[in-house]
């Protein structure tokens, strides 16, 4: 992935101030850290370890245990493709293949231009509208490979102007 960048650790100072003395708040700290940077930078993990007096290995253990946490930055548009049972029955695999074909990325990967990332996620709970994917908080339902490609092209087109 991208080269190691330096992150501004000051950004999470208020979070650490709020939680550092409350036992059991490591997950909340990591959630807020990720909300700040978009992922959990290695430097931030060491910093949290130092401030809270937790071993970096413990933090890494928690960060890798939960699906929500990422150790790498993600693309601008995160495609969360639902892998629930209903979506599976209604063809989520074909949608995943369409995304891979369209963007050249697999589950957990990011496009070279940093525009899209795809993540297979647990059930989004919109089972009756399956298959579904969520991009930037918006849910796209009853997808077909074709409909999915159109959505992606639409987003890419909107971005095209800004990038050019």
């Amino acid at each position: 992935m991208a080269e190691k960048t330096t992150v501004d650790l000051g950004l999470i100072a208020p979070v650490l101030e709020e939680y550092k003395d409350t036992p059991g708040s490591l997950i909340a700290i990591l959630q807020k850290t990720q909300a700040t940077y978009g992922y959990l930078p290695e430097e931030a993990i060491y910093h949290i370890a130092e401030v809270t007096g937790t071993a970096p290995a413990t933090i890494y253990g928690v960060a890798t245990f939960y699906a929500q946490f990422r150790l790498e930055p993600v693309g601008k548009h995160l495609i969360m493709l639902c892998q629930g049972t209903a979506c599976h029955v209604n063809g989520a695999e074909l949608i995943s293949a369409a995304i891979t074909d369209e963007l050249g990325i697999d589950d957990g990967e990011t496009t070279e231009d940093g525009l899209f990332s795809m993540e297979h996620v647990a059930c989004l709970g919109c089972c009756s509208l399956s298959p579904v994917m969520m991009i930037n908080g918006k849910t796209y339902s009853t997808l077909t490979p074709d409909k999915c490609r159109k959505v992606l092209r639409e987003i890419a087109k909107e971005e095209g102007g800004a990038d050019a």
């Binding site: 629930g84 049972t85 209903a86 599976h88 647990a122 059930c123 089972c127």
Partner: peptide, 11 residues
Amino acid sequence: DEGDPGAFMDR
């Protein structure tokens, strides 16, 4: 923590 894929009544 309604994790069962295919269940959404708690939501």
